[in-house]
Design a protein around this nucleic acid. Structure first.
Lengths: 253, 253
DNA sequence: GCATTTATCGTCACCTTGACAATAACTCGA
DNA sequence: TCGAGTTATTGTCAAGGTGACGATAAATGC
């Protein structure tokens, strides 16, 4: 295929279409220590040498966006399988993002339980978890427009918790209602009434599935262990339905 | 800037990054004749010559995505100013979308009142409104992966109505509650109780603003004219907050 | 044991919602 | 001019959801 093929056949353009480097970035969010954390790498080269940045890299020819995002995540963190829910967040650029020129990036959002990342030295990258608030408060500065992308990702994560059962993907396969509540409290930065949360979480049909087992060893009464119900489990790449909340203006059933 | 600049400075890649043609597509939706309509053009050249397609075109160097979408919309429909709410929908590709090779497209969603489009012959394109259901039912086939993009856009539009005040952008600047209700009924494909809808729409603070004026000349009792309240008015390019609905699991105020 | 901690169940007042009656205010045709 | 028809708007009421919070259950740790 030659570039001129576009010139001759595209009614939208009489000129050779511009081509852009396209990258994918992954905003991997997890909940640890009662706070939302994001996975960042340290840049070793210019531009933004020494600055923290989102993991990501160039899309290869013949590759899909989600595939590229999963590949870059694997390459830079060492995780073979996507450890949670991966979805497209949005695209940024191509203008004014990279001092070297126009680069379009397609940001992705990964919601996952805390997973181990490549320790410094095992690769050229230093990947580690950082509290999100340190970045949003301005204490940590990121490369490129990654602060804005992170801010958008956090907003998306917050509303995902309102409108979808995806809060559970921050938890392990089996979890207690209190652990799930801790996720909501960390992401939203608020406290929730344990009794009302319990009523809502267990009372929402199609959300939680009781495993019949309970926790042991912790202080206090043992808690029932739940898992995400099949209906609420996110299909890979698919949009997540809002199982949780009856919105205001709503189409009748 | 040379291509080799990436080779030397990007830790993510030791090779020359691939470059892709990047297009923007616009899914312009409107409500007319109690149905959702989409703006389509007829392709005059291969591939997909004679097939209907979403308006769109290549992103230019130094151009932002939203800017490109607005420009392509203007070029192919003749509208100078964006006639409604334009936001990014999502990106598709670059693999397997175009028989000529990898092309990444960033789809955009325009929600707007019915606006006049370029009549056939005034340009190389024939732009016209088509009922969305004709496409989704398979009666009309679109070029590339535009049917999938349209389906995603319709889904997005439906949930926008649930979670945001954007239903009003389908109406004129001043509108009646019944006109607004007709939008909801058309987008959702259902009937809504006029009395309950009226209560909800007028009772939601920060949504509608009474102009003090009423309709005249129509059959039946004159209806009060409203406009979208300033708080609910969409900021250009900004994400729309959910003013309308109290979701299930919700952060306390 | 007993205090402490955490989980879970209940209660109650208030609000929202859906179904639907009733009234208001216009147009239109006889 | 006078209904008849049509559309808009205000109410009413029962059912269900929600927030605040009391009470109980069942473990741990001393």
């Amino acid at each position: 295929m030659t570039i001129n093929a576009y010139d001759e056949s595209m009614p939208e353009s009489r000129t050779v279409p511009a081509r852009f480097p396209v990258t994918v970035d992954v905003v991997a969010l997890t909940v640890a220590d009662d706070a939302m954390n994001v996975l960042l790498i340290t840049r070793l080269l210019e531009p933004f040498r020494g600055r923290l940045a989102l993991p990501g890299g160039f899309v290869l020819p013949g590759e899909d966006l989600i595939t590229a995002a999963a590949r870059e995540l694997a390459e830079e963190t060492g995780v073979e399988h996507v450890p949670g829910h991966l979805e497209q967040l949005g695209s940024y650029g191509p203008k004014g993002r990279d001092p070297r020129g126009d680069v379009l990036t397609v940001a992705h959002l990964l919601l996952a339980p805390n997973f181990p990342v490549l320790s410094a030295g095992s690769d050229a990258k230093h990947a580690a978890w950082y509290p999100v608030h340190q970045v949003l408060d301005g204490g940590l500065r990121l490369a490129f427009d990654h602060e804005r992308i992170l801010a958008d990702a956090v907003e998306r994560a917050k509303s995902k918790l309102e409108y979808s059962p995806l809060g559970a993907v921050f938890c392990d396969k089996e979890f207690t209602v209190a652990q799930l509540r801790a996720v909501y409290e960390a992401v939203w930065g608020t406290r929730l009434d344990p009794r009302n949360f319990h009523r809502k979480a267990t009372g929402t049909s199609g959300f939680l599935e009781d495993t019949g087992r309970v926790t042991t060893g912790d202080a206090g009464r043992p808690a029932a262990l739940f898992r995400l119900a099949p209906a609420a489990r996110p299909a890979p790449g698919q949009p997540t339905r809002a199982v949780l909340n009856p919105p205001l203006m709503r189409p009748p059933p």
